[in-house]
């Protein structure tokens, strides 16, 4: 699974990164790398079976336990 993920990410990087370097879009490349790192981290953790806390739990906590704006 991990090897499969690495291959997929390598293919995506090979498709997306060369045009950015060729056109010297460094700002785009930095932003792209940030999202790329996030995507790799998330999918690797999922593939390894790590429990990642859901972001929606945070929203639920703010609305329900802090602001008390929920209905039930």
């Amino acid at each position: 699974m991990i090897i499969f993920l690495i291959i997929v990410f390598a293919i995506i990087a090979l498709i997306n990164v060369p045009p950015l370097i060729r056109e010297k879009q460094w700002r785009e490349l930095t932003v792209y790398s940030g999202f790329f790192a996030l995507a790799v981290t998330l999918s690797m953790l999922l593939a390894l079976g790590v429990d990642i806390p859901s972001p929606i739990k945070g929203v639920q906590y703010i609305i329900k336990d802090v602001l008390h704006l929920n209905y039930k």
Partner: peptide
């Protein structure tokens, strides 16, 4: 260039968002 990489993040998020 961002579309597919964001798509992957979305797939991961949809996996963990609700149990």
């Amino acid at each position: 260039p961002y579309i597919f990489i964001i798509g992957i993040i979305l797939i991961c998020l949809s996996n963990i968002i609700f149990s």
